[in-house]
Nucleic acid binder design. Sequence first.
DNA 1: AACATTTGAGGACATTTGTCCTTTACGACA
DNA 2: TGTCGTAAAGGACAAATGTCCTCAAATGTT
Lengths: 190, 190
Amino acid sequence: MDKFKQFLKNIAAITDHELADTLSFFTEKNLQKGDFFVKSGKVCQYAAFIMKGTLRTFYINDKAQETTSCFCIENNFTTSYKSFILQQPSNLFIQAIEYTELLVIDYNNLQKLYKSSPTWQNIGRTVAEQEYIVMEKYASVMNNETAKEKYLRLLREQPNVIKKAPVEDIASYLGVTRRTLSRIRQQISK
Amino acid sequence: MDKFKQFLKNIAAITDHELADTLSFFTEKNLQKGDFFVKSGKVCQYAAFIMKGTLRTFYINDKAQETTSCFCIENNFTTSYKSFILQQPSNLFIQAIEYTELLVIDYNNLQKLYKSSPTWQNIGRTVAEQEYIVMEKYASVMNNETAKEKYLRLLREQPNVIKKAPVEDIASYLGVTRRTLSRIRQQISK
DNA sequence: AACATTTGAGGACATTTGTCCTTTACGACA
DNA sequence: TGTCGTAAAGGACAAATGTCCTCAAATGTT
């Protein structure tokens, strides 16, 4: 819980009093390995702060291939953002790849927080801006780096993901096939 | 000017009175072919609505290659969004690829609008959310579609860009070399 | 422990894309 | 109108990646 308080304080100046008043809007939710937090086709009702564990965000494209867009680890915020904002069916799946503990808030409660407090309005806008920046960085990385560079980045920035996620998912995150990932690992091990 | 009014009205309910009060914050700016609206390394001071013309957004990566991330056409909003929000040096260039007419607002004036009116706060947040969604779509397209599919999409969604932009830029937008773009065009012409 | 099932590594070949280069087409300007 | 310069097309070969496959190691099950 302290992790979440710190996460909020890093975004906006929020008093302990305000925090105490608003934490009741959040509830704990635990996921077993393989459980879905969001499913494609359904409206994403919740936004979550990850206290423990790892989630994989992916979608299924026209060619019926799964593409992993993101691995989300603890101390981060996650949701199917577009679906959540617009309250429209999600095109993303979000699935726990290990046992995961979340702190979630539903859409209506978040709207209440926005209305009740300028601090929360500020948090909402800042999160939107941050999500934009994260997405821009993602797009930039995906466009500019080779699969090998992306793999090395993952190894550097999220080493646990490499240990926890299956090869299939890592390959789809890098935008290559398993075979190519195998070759990349071979190159690196030399 | 009417185009801009319509653009705003599509985002949020804004009265003609409010519009009249706030339009004075915007100024016209014209660019000749090749002129830069934003340069990498400098803080982006302005956000712009494109009344006429076409702009290309690009960056230069580690390997000193230009990568085109976006072609912006009339009736759209453009800026180096990250730089503008954070008031930090831009990593993007935005350049007119033909004669272009803009309606611009500087950062400080926009902050004044935010403070003076909840309607403008609402517009600001909605634009942030829209920019997120556009970026997500962009990342999704770039990851899932082949260069040929992306070319066909460009042909469908922004046919004038294909006529106006040089091969070099279109190729970098598609994430391939000129040689591959040449092959794609050859395939399509059959 | 023994067996079945899943998962990762890597061989062989086909296909795609990049690199380097030449040729062709087009527009600017004297 | 000629010619100069720039931009696009495309040939030839090399390199990278995908497809299909097998084998070995790890994991799960009874």
